[in-house]
């Protein structure tokens, strides 16, 4: 297994772990952290591929993803706060007024 493949596999495993985390955890903040993990897994792929192809594109992309993730984190936490104010909980199973 080449180094590239190893990194890509690691990335895939991280992505998988992140996905599983999203699926299995109930706390919205933890879920959000898992999503961050997924994003970082993708970042790892990008960096790996960028190195493989000898370009900077992928690495540039990673910066953007990180910036976006930061933005998402701030917005996300704010939303979680409003949810907490309305529901007094940030567990996903408590938030299901809307359904059907």
């Amino acid at each position: 297994m080449s180094l590239t493949e190893a990194y890509l596999s690691l990335s895939a495993i991280m992505f998988g772990i992140g996905t599983l985390g999203v699926l299995l955890r109930k706390n919205t903040i933890v879920i959000f952290m898992c999503i961050e993990l997924m994003l970082n897994a993708v970042n790892l792929s990008f960096v790996t591929l960028s190195r493989e192809y000898g370009q900077v594109d992928g690495q540039v992309y990673v910066f953007f993803v990180m910036a976006v993730a930061a933005a998402e984190a701030s917005v996300g936490l704010a939303i979680i706060m409003t949810v907490f104010r309305n529901f007094y909980s940030i567990e996903t199973e408590d938030v299901h007024d809307l359904q059907g």
């Binding site: 999203v22 699926l23 879920i31 996903t92 199973e93 299901h96 007024d97 809307l98 359904q99 059907g100």
Partner: peptide
Amino acid sequence: ARRAHSGRIAGYMLFMV
């Protein structure tokens, strides 16, 4: 199908994946 849209985030996530 309407009932399947239970409003539970976890269920939705599973459904999507």
